[in-house]
């Protein structure tokens, strides 16, 4: 029983940590802000929740599990709100959601030169 629990929790921790790497890779590789948001949301959902589940399975007391669960609840409500705030601010700030080539910060660079 304990061994199965260890294996399950180890698998959750490993997959969660790998998802964090994939998410960071997405934030680096994807071409513009709006697509990078999707890469970032992997870290907020898959990565964070699998790591938390992995830790809950190893928690040695009830209170530790509850605290991890509370971290999960806080992330569950704040992560999409923060993503939406960034996306909406970028939309108002003049980035185009349909044209990745237009979002490379050139206008800003030209403003700096002028």
């Amino acid at each position: 029983m304990s061994l199965a629990l260890d294996i399950l929790s180890g698998a959750c921790l490993f997959v969660g940590a790998v998802l964090m790497i994939v998410s960071a890779l997405g934030v680096i590789r994807l071409p513009d802000l709006f697509t990078r948001l999707h890469g970032a949301s992997i870290a907020d959902t898959g990565g964070a929740f699998l790591l938390l589940i992995g830790m809950i399975l190893q928690a040695d007391s009830f209170l530790v599990g509850i605290k991890l669960g509370l971290i999960g609840i806080v992330l569950f409500f704040t992560a999409p709100t923060a993503s939406h705030a960034v996306a909406h601010a970028a939309l108002i700030g003049g980035l185009s959601p349909d044209d990745p080539g237009a979002n490379q910060g050139r206008e800003e660079a030209e403003e700096d030169r002028a």
């Binding site: 934030v27 802000l33 948001l37 970032a40 992330l75 970028a90 910060g105």
Partner: peptide, 25 residues
């Protein structure tokens, strides 16, 4: 790298989410 300030804010937000889990780990 940026290039826009929103990219930087997004990167720092993800960095923060990862920090939360790093502290727990």
């Amino acid at each position: 790298r940026g290039p826009t300030p929103y990219d930087r804010i997004l990167a720092v937000n993800v960095h923060g989410t990862m920090t939360v889990l790093l502290i727990a780990l």
